[in-house]
């Protein structure tokens, strides 16, 4: 078994190209759970722990978040809290400070766990992932990056290097509905971000991936309860829901209508 610790993105993607079976380790929280449970085995590991360039966080203009930036840093960073409060709120909603001290932005996207908090907010914020490989780099909107349960459009030699979030022009809200303990993962999550008078509403944690319906959002009349209700009903109708310990499909359908409506009224005020 090997564990390598490259110090540059170039070295990582070369190692990845040479050994596509090797597993990339970022924060290692999700991987740690899988490995401990015996659900993931690998001969070779490529750890990002020494790749300094992936830990950069820049907030001049758009927000540029290196893939190895920890959740906790986004939650506490003054600029992020002030200018991208929705992003700060969604990362703050993840698990516990202990997990957020380790979990990374690249990791949460590469895992594509349906019950994670950040993806819906990143989609609502029109965030884009920058992806590198020996073949070059490309940019993919987060809504295209996550394709389903624990699946992404990443090729096997690719690495998420950073996430770029445009500077928002309007309010943002993140609503996390918990149905059990207050430290639970979401039964539903709704992110709504207003940008130049239009809204992007994204519903997460109820289905295999976050859902955004631009045509429904286009009908929004800010501050109008009926409009919010109609959009909520439209979202509720169109999503295909899952059942889990945090709620049945029927329950989720019902509360998504409510939570979307509430989110829209919140960003109106």
């Amino acid at each position: 078994m090997t564990w390598i610790q490259p110090t540059s993105v170039d070295a990582v993607v070369r190692a990845r190209a040479e050994n596509p079976e090797a597993i990339i380790v970022a924060g290692g929280t999700f991987l740690g759970i899988l490995v401990r449970a015996g659900m993931l085995e690998a001969d070779d590991w490529i750890s990002l722990q020494d790749v300094r360039e992936l830990t950069r966080l820049q907030s001049l203009g758009d927000l540029s978040i290196g893939a190895m930036v920890r959740h906790r840093r986004l939650e506490l960073d003054e600029d992020v809290r002030g200018i991208w409060p929705g992003i700060a709120a969604a990362f703050r909603a993840v698990a516990s400070p202990r997990v957020r001290n380790v979990a990374t932005v690249g990791g949460v996207l590469a895992d594509a766990d349906y019950a994670s908090d950040p993806p819906s907010m990143l989609v609502a914020s029109r965030a884009v992932a920058e992806i590198a490989s020996v073949r070059g780099s490309r940019r993919v909107p987060i809504e295209e990056l996550i394709t389903g349960h624990y699946s992404t459009c990443l090729e096997e030699d690719e690495l998420i290097t950073r996430v770029i979030v445009p500077r928002p022009q309007g309010p943002a809200v993140y609503r996390k509905l918990r149905t059990r303990s207050q430290e639970d993962r979401p039964s539903s999550s709704v992110a709504a971000v207003v940008h130049q008078g239009t809204v992007r509403v994204v519903v997460g944690a109820v289905s295999d991936r976050p859902h955004h319906f631009a045509d429904l959002c286009a009908t929004w009349r800010p501050g109008n309860e009926d409009s919010a209700r109609e959009i909520g009903a439209g979202y509720a109708e169109r999503i295909e829901y899952i059942d889990d310990n945090r709620g049945s499909a029927a329950y989720r359908r019902r509360v998504v209508a409510v939570e979307v409506r509430r989110a829209l009224m919140q960003v109106s005020s």
């Binding site: 380790v25 929280t29 991987l31 740690g32 590991w45 906790r72 698990a95 001290n101």
Partner: peptide, 24 residues
């Protein structure tokens, strides 16, 4: 990594030692 009985400080920050691969 959910309950915290394995908590240790890594550079003064709490982390879950039960799911942290040791090389990290």
């Amino acid at each position: 990594g959910l309950c915290g009985t394995c908590t240790v400080l890594m550079d003064e920050q709490p982390v879950s030692a039960c799911i942290l691969m040791a090389p990290l």
